[in-house]
Design a protein around this nucleic acid. Structure first.
Length: 128
DNA sequence: AGCGTGACGAGTA
DNA sequence: ATACTCGCCACGC
């Protein structure tokens, strides 16, 4: 034992501690009410920091701890690899969906962003 | 120190 | 409708 040392190295990254930015993203994700969705870009804009890519990365790494299906792409395309999982949640929550055309019956429905998009419900206080 | 990386977004062809 | 490019910015190496 005896190794005291080593101040020079990596910071004590606690396994339970996530990057601060990630924690904020997850918090916003939990704020999204059932039946509504926010795009990655919306979350980033709502946070006022980072960008859609940053939000996406956080969700990819830690999204399993929050209702990840409520954070969607602006295109309304369901998350690849979890389409059916997400679709089950949307139907259970009554999230507006855009049914695929008959010509595209091979496609799964996409989200109706125009109807499901949540603005944050008055995020900033407002001094009434 | 810098560089590559993305659960992305919008624009262009 | 698809395919491609560029910009975006936190994070690990």
């Amino acid at each position: 034992m005896s190794q005291e040392s080593l101040p020079s190295g990596s910071p004590p990254e606690h396994p339970d501690a996530l990057p601060e930015y990630a924690e904020r993203v997850l918090e916003v994700a939990e704020l999204i009410p059932p039946g509504r969705v926010m795009t990655y870009g919306d979350v980033a804009e709502w946070l006022g920091e980072g960008g859609p890519r940053q939000v996406g990365r956080v969700m990819a790494l830690y999204g399993g701890a929050v209702p990840w299906w409520r954070v969607v792409r602006a295109d309304g395309v369901l998350l690849p690899g979890h389409e059916l999982r997400a679709l089950g949640h949307y139907r259970a929550e009554g999230t507006p969906l855009k049914e695929a055309s008959r010509a595209a019956e091979g496609h799964l429905p996409r989200l109706d962003i125009g109807g499901a998009r949540w603005d944050g419900g008055g995020h900033t206080e407002g001094h009434t």
